[in-house]
Design a protein around this nucleic acid. Structure first.
Lengths: 230, 230
DNA sequence: CTCTCGTTACTTGCATACAATATTAAACGA
DNA sequence: TCGTTTAATATTGTATGCAAGTAACGAGAG
């Protein structure tokens, strides 16, 4: 195992740095992401750059204009709202089905994960909690017993990941999150689909709130309101 | 996402024929899709073949086993059930939000689309109805006013497309579908999110039924049942 | 006969070169 | 001056070659 070799694919790491720069505002909205220029900057060929651009586009951070190149899209407040709303609805969906379909073993595993996280909330580090948090939510996806739900949820999670990356949770947030998890676990174990749905929506809503707080600190210009009702 | 490619990309057409062969059972489940062999068969280079395999995998018709190649996955009854269930839930989701958020103009457009389809159901061809049907459902996606919902719905629609392809609807099915559309439109116009949700779930359920009927005619071996409850 | 180690073959990511197509610009004529 | 046609440029798709890493296979040792 030569650690020298890139465990992470070249295209992926390029995509990651591009995402970070876009989110930090270093790469302005509307900028053209030229394949050849990026290839020169990163000192690689066009092939991994193409893959990276595919990823960035799939995350919604840029769009391909046919024969005009890839341009980074504007990160608006509305965009972030959409993201969290969609994640919330998908998680709610998975939670509802999980409440109905999880086996006893799966419920036990979920409860075990939650108990582990309760310990981590008190004494563990933020990164350990975050890792466990991912497993917790993935258990709920899997509990829906529908591979397409799992896929959609994972896709949304990936879309949110660049935003989550900068969000270093403090202890207060972790404890709050853990309390919400308790409600989710109880609803699922009690087979109460409606309650699980509501609890997960609420959970994602509060996650969005804290995320937006941190976000507006670094990029105050991102703020707007739209009226969604007709 | 290639928004509008007039010329069909090589990789896409290769993917389409591969999908068709897989769905017809000409390519058995478990077969290895070798890049170089396919490149030779289609008389192209490995590059478009790679893109084609990416597409086939993204549709769920095959999976990549690391360092073992791409193998076509088994099309089970459970897989199809998952697909339609997920599509139904996503459409229900979009319908619920559309009922709440659509502008008056959007509601009018939806109604207009439905009226056009009612005419087509009586006198138009099946392919014309199918095209209008796609626009109808896309209008509901867009009415949710959330770009991520739209993306997920479109992704699911793409996943279902290889199955839909072989399904040539007869007049009875079209009329039934149109009646269901009437309920959907009414619920959305009346701003009744719950009703829209239910109507769309029902609509997709009946679509799944007719699809499965046709499917079992061509591939009778595909049938199974699983118990989903715990 | 079984286990281990080394070799081979295959998958796969990356680089580079080439070709085709669309957009833009420019030149030209009316 | 305006419209049309043609040339330049950029984006994008494709072809091949190569290198690196992993899995499968087989030979030799115990």
């Amino acid at each position: 195992m030569t650690s020298d070799t890139p465990r992470r694919l070249l295209g992926h790491s390029i995509a990651a740095t591009l995402e970070e720069r876009i989110l930090l505002g270093e790469i302005a909205a509307g900028s053209k992401l030229d394949e050849t220029s990026l290839a020169r900057d990163f000192d690689v060929s066009r092939t991994p750059v193409r893959e990276a651009l595919q990823i960035v586009v799939s995350r919604g951070l840029a769009v391909r204009m046919p024969y005009k190149g890839v341009v980074v899209s504007d990160i608006t407040r509305d965009r972030i709202d959409d993201l969290f709303e969609a994640m919330g609805e998908i998680e709610a969906l998975c939670g509802r089905f999980s409440a109905q379909r999880m086996s006893m073993e799966e419920r036990a595993v979920l409860l075990g994960l939650h108990e582990t996280m309760s310990d981590l909330a008190l004494q563990g580090g933020a990164e350990a909690y975050e890792a466990a948090n991912t497993r917790f939510h993935q258990a709920i996806y899997a509990g829906s017993h529908n591979s397409d739900f799992v896929e959609m949820a994972e896709a949304m999670r990936l879309k949110l990941s660049p935003f989550r990356r900068s969000q270093l949770a403090d202890r207060a947030r972790i404890e709050h999150s853990n309390a919400e998890h308790a409600q989710i676990v109880e609803a699922i174990i009690e087979r109460d689909g409606q309650a699980a749905e509501k609890a997960l929506r609420r959970h994602l809503l509060s996650a969005a709130q804290t995320m937006l707080e941190k976000w507006t600190q670094t990029r105050p210009e991102v703020s707007s309101t739209r009226s969604r009702a007709s």
